[in-house]
Design a protein around this nucleic acid. Structure first.
Length: 419
DNA sequence: TCTGGGGTCCTAGGACCC
DNA sequence: TCTGGGGTCCTAGGACCC
């Protein structure tokens, strides 16, 4: 049996942990710059706030239903996520942290355990110890565990937040209930295609011939079909080094000059370099992109990206910033209102296996310098040491008007019980 | 006025090799 | 008159996930 544990409305639930007065009340959490809705409590879903809703368009609805609005507080969510995962790791050695609020557990071989009982125990303990409510689905494949999890979420009372698919009857019942677009791995495009040929439920999808799925779709969907039929095709995956790393942001206002964009590009490069060093990789190419606000159709639009191959592998913020700036120079055009920019670093190699070049190499002094900078920033706070070409005063100048305290990671913001 | 950020995998087609 | 068969690597684009 595989289990999938998923935290219910995770970000919204995090906001409730230290604010029990918000239980039963609608909550939404907004993206960076307080742009759009990225999480909703059940009550917020019930009053009709859709996922991804632009906050400014829904202000009236928020007011009308007294929706509690929060800016994303990733320090809090990350810390609570870690606590949840720590508890899970005490139950099962084979675990895959699939996202900030989800984990697969491999219970194959737990033959003498009463898994239904264990599942309930896990759900209760996580809730009790962290304040985060969770749902758990058990089944013979990861994809079916996802399905089971959905059932548990949809029927919390009947299932006590834990659902088992342990017979063919239950499997078929769940698949007949599940809409095809709700299958893990079937998105908007594929469900449109499937609906067009009369396939509306997960069960109907499993009845398609293999060759059809393989030809009309791809091996991924064929794997999915087998998984839904109860044949495990996916295993628990070990945490792997990333193959791409990105730092991209929308700006709080439009930028016009090269210098404004350059500062952002340098800062994003420094951030990518830090992330590279954290996983002990160097990159050998990088992409810079800039674009105007695509939502403002009446404005002149401009959008370009450029990929540059580096002459040598590097994870030095100084070097990446230098190459990124050269790239920016090649794509920047005057006369546009820029809304977003980003850096994506690609083509990695391990930092201790860098192929040296005969003529041009990464400055060896940077290694020591970066280590020192990382050390200082780790000790006294992010971005305390920066490059001269970065804006000294700003951290991420983001609009975050509804930010909750960092209850668990910042001593000065700890909750006061009685003052 | 205001619309997020960060990832992965697969396929088809072109260029090239012997 | 007749024009093979088997590969690899790379890229862009499209799909998906949270």
């Amino acid at each position: 049996m595989f289990a999938l544990l998923d935290c219910n409305n995770f970000y919204a639930s995090c906001e409730r942990v230290f604010r029990p007065d918000l239980n039963g009340k609608p909550i939404v959490v907004l993206s960076n710059n307080d742009g759009c809705v990225i999480a909703r409590s059940n009550e917020a879903k019930a009053v009709g706030v859709p996922m991804g809703a632009p906050a400014f368009k829904y202000q009236e609805l928020f007011n009308e239903h007294k929706v509690n609005v929060f800016s994303a507080n990733f320090a809090l969510y990350g810390d609570l996520s870690m606590r949840v995962m720590n508890i899970l790791s005490t139950y099962c050695p084979e675990m895959e942290i699939y996202s900030i609020d989800e984990a697969f557990l491999d219970f194959r071989g737990f033959d003498y355990q009463d898994l239904p009982k264990l599942g309930k125990e896990i759900a209760i303990k996580v809730h009790k110890w962290t304040g985060i409510p969770v749902s758990i689905g058990f089944a013979e494949t990861k994809t079916l565990a996802k399905v089971a999890n959905r059932v548990a979420k949809k029927y919390p009372k009947q299932t006590s937040n834990v659902h088992f698919i342990d017979s063919d009857e239950k499997r078929i019942k769940a698949l007949k209930w599940l809409k095809v677009e709700d299958i893990w791995g079937i998105g908007r495009q594929l469900s449109k295609k499937l609906n067009a040929i009369g396939v509306n439920t997960a069960y109907e999808f499993t009845q398609l011939p293999d060759e059809y799925v393989r030809k009309q779709m791809s091996v991924v969907e064929l794997r999915l079909k087998n998984e839904l039929a109860g044949q495990p095709m996916l295993q628990i995956e070990k945490r792997q080094a990333k193959k791409n790393i990105a730092t991209t942001r929308s700006f709080e206002k439009n930028y016009t000059t090269f210098d404004e964009l350059a500062e952002r590009v340098v800062t994003f490069s420094v951030s990518c370099a830090e992330k590279l060093r954290r996983q002990k990789s160097c990159c050998t190419s990088l992409m810079v992109f800039i674009h105007t606000n695509g939502f403002r159709k009446e404005m002149p639009q401009y959008s370009r990206n450029i990929v540059v191959k580096l002459p040598y592998a590097s994870n030095s913020g100084i070097e990446l910033a230098k190459f990124a700036l050269q790239a920016l120079q090649r794509i920047y055009k005057q006369g546009y209102l820029y809304k977003k920019a980003g850096i994506i670093v690609m083509d990695f190699c391990p930092e201790n296996e860098v192929q040296h070049s005969l003529f041009e190499n990464s400055d060896p002094r940077h290694k020591v310098l970066m280590k020192t900078m990382d050390g200082i920033n780790a000790r006294i706070g992010q971005q305390k040491i920066k490059l001269g070409s970065q804006d000294r005063d700003r951290i991420w100048k983001m609009k975050q008007e509804r930010l909750s305290p960092r209850y668990t990671t910042k001593l000065s913001e700890i909750i006061i019980v009685n003052s």
